[in-house]
Design a binder for these strands. Sequence first.
DNA 1: AACCAGGTTTCATGTAATGAAACGCGAGAG
DNA 2: CTCTCGCGTTTCATTACATGAAACCTGGTT
Lengths: 246, 246
Amino acid sequence: MEDRKLTVRAVERALDILLCFTKSKELALTEIASLIGLHKSTVHRLMATLEDKGFVVRNSETEKYRLGLKIWELSVHMSQSDDPAARLLPAMESLRDRLGETVSLYLRDGAERIRIQAVQSNQAIRRVAQVGARLPLSVGASSKVLVAFAAPADQEELLNAPDWPESVDRDAYRKQLVDIIQDGYAISMEEREPGAAAVAVPIFDRNGKVAAALSMSGPVTRLSAEKLREYAPILKEAAHEMGMMI
Amino acid sequence: MEDRKLTVRAVERALDILLCFTKSKELALTEIASLIGLHKSTVHRLMATLEDKGFVVRNSETEKYRLGLKIWELSVHMSQSDDPAARLLPAMESLRDRLGETVSLYLRDGAERIRIQAVQSNQAIRRVAQVGARLPLSVGASSKVLVAFAAPADQEELLNAPDWPESVDRDAYRKQLVDIIQDGYAISMEEREPGAAAVAVPIFDRNGKVAAALSMSGPVTRLSAEKLREYAPILKEAAHEMGMMI
DNA sequence: AACCAGGTTTCATGTAATGAAACGCGAGAG
DNA sequence: CTCTCGCGTTTCATTACATGAAACCTGGTT
């Protein structure tokens, strides 16, 4: 209990409850209680508050909770014309058309990355990327890009975090990062998902910080390492233009 | 102070803060404080909590707050394949193509309605409907539909609410509702917006409750009262089909 | 330099959040 | 038909913790 928390516990708990709904979209009271480890009466009170304000609604039959209209409303007002995912969509689409493979955009969020936009290849065999998916930073081309160009302090924190997977050797990973910074791109062959390969590049904002990672991905059968490297300059060029739009 | 509140004050306040961002998408600490009438130190603590959990982020230059990634993430997980707005979109588009005018979908939320989906007419002169807009229940074709088919208890509560606008005569309104229930549709000529006319019908769910209002709207120059009445059956038919999809 | 308008931190105070326990209630089970 | 179990709801004593006044920073203006 060193540094006193300058946050509000009740609110933290309420927000944690909301975040439960990214895992499952319908939850019962007791489920939530056990999920975040609180007494059901406490959760009940918090849920009543959330429901009162329209952040959750309850299914009148099952009595389970789901996210409410207010969340939707906030998201609408958020994404109106200023969210990068919407602004970069056209550029991503033209890149997809040029490359013929699925193109995705990732943001780093703490010790994870999150796919905020994706346009699918229209080939018969293709990677299907779900928008909103949360993925680890330990594997995948975009992950390595996001980590490689992160602030050194962040980088070490991520690598030394207790939940860094055993299976990923830290030193080997660090070594890769050096190359990635030099090359300006990262590739991955079936790192996270069997059968999938990808190449990713950073998108820098005006201040020269990584704003996002742009990736192209598809089946290994179509994408050899050499082929990925060929594509890298095209991605870089697109990323540079996108950086101007952020 | 009759019935004790079974909600959590700190959480209520935090949620109120989040809702401020439907009005303005970037807010400074003091703005928020005055907006909801709290001391800035209290707001600061609440904001720190919201920021910590990623529900708001602050613009590093202006120091102002805006909604964060978590809100977006929640909304993505919410609307994946189960939100009516997405499921009804194709039906609305075909209706728009058939009628040539803007088609909108409204939900009642308390004493307001909210436009959850809209497909725009592609004529040169057209109504432009913003998704996410919050509108009063006192005027407009969709409002009248939503009120007319609401539960009687709700209906009276709405009409007797202190914030019912003076300009709208309650008795005249009640009288209209009777006709609307009988006809199964409502029309409005420049009620809410000068130059705009609309016809709206209810969408019932399987239990026979109004789930939403479906409306077609356009410039009065194109849409006379007779013309609107002509369109009503087409809307009803579409609404019936949509009801099956909810 | 003096000021001001933000934001941040501190701290004493007592409100209000908490969780144990009791209550209600419907669904199966026996 | 009663019993019991699981789940949601309510009550209540306790004190942790949210609160807001005030002091403290900080960078920008006059």
